[in-house]
Design a protein around this nucleic acid. Sequence first.
RNA 1: GGUUGUGUAGCUCAAUUGGAUAGAGCAUCUGACUACGAAUCAGAAGGUUUAAGGUUCGACUCCUUACACGACCA
Length: 667
Amino acid sequence: MQQLESSLKTALQTAAQAVFGVEIPAASLTLQPTRKEFAGSFTLVTFPLTKALGKGPEQIGQALGEWLKAHEPRVSGYNVVKGFLNLEIADAEWLAVFNQLRAQPATAPVGTDGGPQNVVVEYSSPNTNKPLHLGHLRNNFLGYSVAEILKATGATVTKANLVNDRGIHICKSMIAYQEIGRGEKPSATLKGDHLAGKYYVFFEVVNKYQIGEVRSIVEGILKYIEEYKSQKYTIVRRLIILQTITELIDNVAKEEKKDIAFAKFLPQLLKSLGRIAADDKESPLRFFYKRLRNSYNDLWIVKAQKMLVKWEQGDEKVLALWRKMNGWVYMGFDETYKNIGVDFDQYYYESETYLLGKERVEEGLEKGVFFKKENGSVWVDLQAEGLDEKLLLRADGTSVYITQDLGTAELKYQDFGYDSSIYVIADEQNYHMQVLQATLQKLGKPYADAIHHLSYGMVDLPSGKMKSREGTVVDADELVRDVVAAAKAATLEKGKTEGLSDEELEELYHMLGLGALKYYLLKVDPKKRMLFNPEESVSLEGHTGPFIQYSHARIAAIRRKAAELGIDESADWSSITSLEGTERELVQELARYASVVAEAARNLSPAVIAQYAYDLAKAYNRFYAEVSIFQETDVAKRSLRVALSARVGEQIKQSLKLLGMQVPERM
RNA sequence: GGUUGUGUAGCUCAAUUGGAUAGAGCAUCUGACUACGAAUCAGAAGGUUUAAGGUUCGACUCCUUACACGACCA
């Protein structure tokens, strides 16, 4: 079809030369598919040619159309509507296009066409303190699909998973487990990742209570200050300073950081209180001091922070617990990954890359592109790039998020020498990714320009945003169970699965349930925020995955019957002189595949493939309803229709494969 | 406040990257299974593309301003 299109353009150039004596550059010819309310297959927009050719748009259309009809055998007719020249293509040509298509398997690479040849796609990238949720599913499906799409162009693709296995969040799970876990292990009813997640939630609950408790003590102190301001002037003055600090802490934006900042401020408060209480034996401050000291020593958040420090120092006991819990989490993740049908060629762990990141920071200091502030923290100035100054390494030498990302980027390049490195990360990290790229550019890294952020929107629920604190997070494992159960119920109701074994049935339910879910999440343009409606996500009718899978099963039935009847798919079709409208549409739809994959690869958008698979299935169902296959008496036509069906089935299968979906033979 | 993304039918999404009368699905209504699979097909109804300007043969698409929602940065 691409050949047909480009040769039509050449023919149009020749026509312009012959009729108007003017040479038209191919780039100024915009050929597009004809809208279905008009006759024809390709449309030339003639408006842009009026200046070059010195005629009106309609005249140009008429003249070019007439010339083509007379001199170009593939053009069987034309019509002109305002500035649009619609070209009708001879059915013999469509048959030729179809034959050409069939010469290649549906799985053949479509060509990288100037795109990247060697790509690393990083996706999933979970934290190890919680199981996967709905948002991760969008990420996983997108990453997997984009990798498959790029493979389909012929590129070499590596799927990478960067596991965030270190940091305060894991320490939180570990502390809670240590305090109240009583040696619990993952079980058949509680996977490892869910176990870690459970203790993470426990941590948050206890922490919230503890912080509340400490806050109320602090409030008691503040109240005391208010009421006795005039009496104990010198003491109170010191306390007022502390009051302003607590207010500042309350202005910290994020709840989590607020707690940490608050906890960090407490030792300072305790110290002052201790001194004051010693001077001032009658004051209630003595009472508050004791209370605060006891509560402070119990604080889990403080324990978690101490644990993080120990982890960085390589404390063997901490590391042992860390390894144990992470090991459980990985087993849980592996099960989920297998269940949702995604995989990885390479794992990276932040615990292994953050040191490499520190080296990059050193390198930047040596090159003079980073700078050190008085307190010893390291920064990069990106104001010339339209960004801000960005912290790369804290004053105490501990790393921040971007430190590890610098290391991982380097490592990936060492390992794979990519010409494109794709990060599948939610759009809340847009700024962060810009900073990462700009920082690597400052370092003069050859791979900096190869970085692409596949930024996708968050998934909302009908009830609003997903918030872990409010318990509105949709768990991935649970969701998959639900969609599979829904698919099972629907399939049983239809009752068309006679002859399948129990095992095959389970496989089918899984295929359909997951197909519904994946298609639902992938059909939306990645960059858009999307709404997750549970009922629609398990729907099997209309614009859904199972609709397309159904079309495949239907075609499979046709093929079985054709084989039974001994119909030859590759009979001689030369006797066929005209096609049905739906047959022609089907060939056109089939022929679009290569350019669709190319577009999806260019835009890193599985939604393009999803839309195509739907269009193809829709076109087939139309054909199926309007044209009879086995009642057709003309042997050539019957053979052609079976061949068309077969090819559609294969291309549906291939298209869905690019989305990470499978197709059934019956359903 | 600064930066940035989004805004299309009652709802969820498209629109070949500036082209014709803005298309699908869901929901509503109507019709089609003793011809191959009705998880299907055909049809009806549903729109000032958030608003106002601008650019041009032509704007959902580009520019400006405003509004709404989200994200990020303080």
